[in-house]
Design a binder for these strands. Structure first.
Length: 444
DNA sequence: TCACCACCAACACTCGATGA
DNA sequence: TCATCGAGTGTTGGTGGTGA
């Protein structure tokens, strides 16, 4: 993105503007504005993409105010990618639905090494590749946040949307512009691309989330329960200025659509998923670091080794991660494998083991659905688990209760399937004392 | 200002229908 | 028989709108 020489120059010019030295005073307002814009963009990249700031917040603010003053004095100096244009004053009360350029699919799941080997076998069968040939896989963290789709046209960010139902999402462009790790401008035209759509995940660093909650506690405000809901909630706020306060981050994980100026498929000359990530990193997007956070594995056993190492060290990682994503790296093989209506056949999520807790099954209530189906729901003693308080767990049907031999008063092991849905894993039969009561399903 | 409700986000699981 | 699809079910938390 920036060569060492460019970085050195930008840093030196930052100091010149802070000190208002002779070289700065000699510039015209337009030259000053152009240079300040470049300096601030560089520092946003250092801070939000590289996590390695070189200026203090105060110094950044001073430079920002210099640019703001120049633009206020002469609005013709304002450009759409100016850091001052991230946060507008307009409030958006409605978020219209917009169609994604390509569907935002889910992923199939795997939970252990055997599942991954089975996935590898499936891919080979589908592509008529023999067992003793290897497929290269790109492996990257599965961030636990809110999905986002970004559209750039003629190098400028023109639209951002939530995932929605995968076909239609909610338009949140103004809020996306307030997230400083999303570049307002990226030089796709350098690569002959006129219109692109990117996929990413919006989330909050764990330390920034804790700092925000500490601030809220000091101000007497209610605390946020967990980082993911805070991030996804932040995307839907009316006021972009408040979004900017949330310190949201965005990792980009796919270039899902690309069109050249001639209207041709711009993905044709991008041979691998890894190439597309390298391209996006070059253009200034936040991408997991090669080698440490993501890896190109030459065969499935290397994938298993990498995801296992990640599972062991996930707690130390500064972002919430609920698994890893394994993708066939070769785009031509991806095309051949295709997708179902639900997920691509060339990618799979490896889910880390869910966090578990024990609680007591106190009662069972029966809920009647819209079409008249009756669903038993366990009321359990409230227990904190993975950032939420679990008090209610679906038991699905009578067979589920029988199969797990659940009884009122049982101590049960609960987890959050997919880190979301409460699920009773089993009753801890060793802890029974004879006082447990059978669960009676209502007669039809 | 507060409580309540609707909607949305995350996603798992079940089940009947369908097609290969 | 198996894979897939699609509808319907579920939980928790955040935001925004509304009414008291």
């Amino acid at each position: 993105m920036y060569s060492p020489a460019e970085q050195k120059l930008r840093f030196a010019r930052s100091k010149a503007f802070l000190e208002q030295d002779a070289s700065v005073l000699a510039l015209s307002p337009r030259e000053k504005a152009e240079e300040l814009r470049a300096i601030l963009q560089y520092h946003e990249w250092r801070y939000y993409i590289q996590n390695d700031p070189v200026l203090s917040d105060t110094e950044y603010d001073l430079l920002y105010k210099q640019l703001e003053a120049l633009e206020a004095a002469d609005p013709s100096l304002i450009t759409p990618d100016s850091p001052t244009q991230r946060v507008g004053s307009d409030l958006s009360s409605d978020m219209p639905s917009v169609a994604h350029l390509t569907p935002m699919l889910s992923l199939a799941n795997s939970y252990n090494a055997e599942d991954l080997r089975e996935f590898d076998q499936q891919v080979k069968r589908m592509l008529n590749i023999s067992d003793n040939e290897d497929i290269a896989y790109a492996v990257e963290p599965k961030f636990d946040g809110g999905s986002i789709a970004l559209v750039y046209e003629n190098d400028y960010l023109v639209r951002a949307a939530t995932r929605g139902n995968g076909i239609l999402g909610e338009e949140i462009t103004a809020n996306a512009r307030a997230i400083r790790s999303i570049p307002l401008k990226a030089s796709f035209s350098k690569y002959g691309l006129q219109k692109v759509e990117l996929r990413g995940e919006v989330l909050i660093r764990k330390d920034r989330f804790e700092a925000m909650n500490a601030q809220r506690a000091a101000a007497g405000q209610s605390l946020f329960a967990n980082a993911r809901n805070t991030a996804t909630g932040g995307l839907r706020m009316k006021d972009p200025r408040e979004v900017a306060q949330r310190n949201l981050d965005t990792f980009i994980y796919a270039l899902s659509y690309a069109e050249t100026a001639e209207g041709a498929n711009g993905l044709d000359h991008i041979k691998t998923h890894y190439q597309s990530l390298d391209l996006l990193a070059e253009l200034g997007f936040k991408i997991p670091a090669d080698g440490q956070e993501r890896k190109l594995c030459t065969h499935i056993e290397e994938v298993i080794e990498f995801v296992t190492a990640w599972e062991t060290g996930r707690e130390a990682y500064p972002y919430e991660v609920d698994g890893m994503v394994v993708k066939v790296n070769d785009r031509e093989l991806q095309e051949r494998a295709g997708h179902t209506s639900h997920h691509p056949r060339w990618a799979i999520a490896y889910k880390f083991a869910a966090k578990q807790a024990t609680t007591v099954l106190e009662a069972v209530e029966y809920q009647v659905g819209k079409v008249g189906s009756i669903t038993p729901v366990a009321k359990v003693r409230p227990v904190a688990l993975a950032g939420v308080t679990i008090s209610s767990v679906s038991l699905h049907n009578e067979d589920f209760i029988k199969e797990k031999d659940l009884r009122l008063g049982d101590t049960v092991l609960v987890e959050r399937a997919g880190d979301v849905i409460p699920y009773i894993v089993k009753a801890l039969e060793d802890l029974r004392d004879g006082s447990e009561q059978p669960i009676v399903f209502p007669t039809h």
